Simulated assay, not measured.
Amino acid sequence: MTLRAAVLGHPITHSKSPALHRAAYAHLGVQLDYTAIDVTEEELPAFMARVREDVRQGQSWRGLSVTMPLKAGMVREVDEVRGVARELGVVNTVAFEPAAPGDSTGSTRLVGYNTDVAGIVNALRHAGAVSAPTGVVLGGGGTSAAAIAALKELGAPDADVFVRDVSRAAEARAAAAALGMPVRIRPMNEAAAAMAAADVVISTLPPRAADPLAGELAGLFARPAGQPSRENRPGLSGVLLDAAYDPWPSRIASAWQSAGGAVVPGLEMLIYQAVEQVRHFTGLGAAVPAEVIDVMCDAVGAPRRVF
């Protein structure tokens, strides 16, 4: 019987998750059919009810990847939330695991995880992020919760979170409180200077939403007439991870790199978090070989050298 898995979200046609997962399962020799399914927030409860019925009818679901705008709502649709996902209230991975004998949920238990945190941490570490960094997060939605958790795992003592509307950062505030991580919620128009001084910046903004900041950064590091060349002037020394990977390079990534900073494409974060999902969906855990990352890189055109 062919196993099933899918990525859920709205919109979903742009997702690179099918290419990543299919490449991994082909390499591993696992017969797992992975598809993309468009599901809105309003449709999620009914969709999950159909999935549970599929399981009762014997269909072999093994996992769900969950993207925006479903990460918070999925918490209410699973039987159990584990690890950092429990603290964040944000699920991006659902694993279908055998239930213990007598479990009232049936023979299969739906367990929610968050692999975004591991994806961010691993991508930043491979880019040379320092320990105990000064951290900045752009955006206050579901992915910002994972970004705050990642900064805590890297040893950051606190973080500045910049949002367009300081009254609408509930997910970031809740995540910080649950983690015991001090954060300051600040308006986006103050972000550029703080970014320039930070060791790590994580942008969780949608594609092109950070474009205005790119212009501000370029202005901060522009060379006035008669001033020394770039090689003789101070520049950025921090690492920027831009979770938006299409189009790439983003304007903010280009501005950051031009000023001397290191850039981590969101595609790297996506690959690292997908590897963790493959571990859950196949049941192989740590037995998933390292070369799986190579085939996943090839599937989406990411250079292997970054890993």
Rank of each mutant, 00 (worst) to 15 (best):
D103L: 07
I37M: 12
V306L: 08
E216T: 08
V66F: 05
A196V: 07
G285W: 10
P265L: 11
S229L: 14
R173P: 05
L241P: 00
H126W: 13
S65F: 02
D160T: 10
V161H: 06
V263R: 00
A156P: 06
G180Q: 04
V292Q: 06
L64E: 05
V137S: 00
A192P: 05
A214V: 02
E43I: 02
L270C: 09
D38H: 14
V201T: 14
R22M: 14
P101W: 04
A290P: 01
V30S: 03
S17Q: 04
G283I: 12
A19K: 09
M181F: 11
A253M: 10
Y34H: 12
R168K: 15
S107R: 15
Q273C: 08
A176W: 03
G83E: 11
L151T: 03
G83V: 08
I37Q: 13
G29D: 08
S15R: 03
V300Q: 05
E87W: 08
D246E: 14
V288N: 01
I293D: 07
A127H: 05
G141D: 04
A262C: 09
I120F: 11
G155F: 10
G73K: 14
A46F: 06
G285F: 12
L205W: 03
R184T: 15
V166I: 14
S17H: 13
V292E: 09
R125M: 04
R62L: 10
L70I: 05
I252S: 03
G285I: 05
E53F: 12
N232H: 15
A172K: 00
E291Y: 10
D103Y: 05
L70E: 00
E41D: 09
I202P: 02
M68D: 02
G235N: 03
R4M: 11
R52E: 05
P212G: 10
V300T: 07
A85M: 10
R279S: 06
A262N: 08
G58P: 03
L64K: 07
N189R: 15
E97F: 11
A178N: 08
R304H: 10
I252A: 04
A118D: 13
A299I: 02
L151F: 13
A255L: 12
A100W: 07
E77F: 05
L124Q: 03
L213Y: 01
G285H: 12
R251Y: 02
E53C: 04
G102L: 09
L8E: 01
M48Q: 11
S167N: 14
G260C: 08
G141N: 07
D199T: 07
L240R: 04
D54F: 02
H27W: 12
V130L: 10
Q273E: 05
H280N: 01
E77H: 06
G112A: 10
V136P: 01
A145T: 00
E190I: 07
Q257E: 15
R76F: 09
Q31Y: 06
V263Y: 09
G128E: 06
A145C: 09
F221V: 11
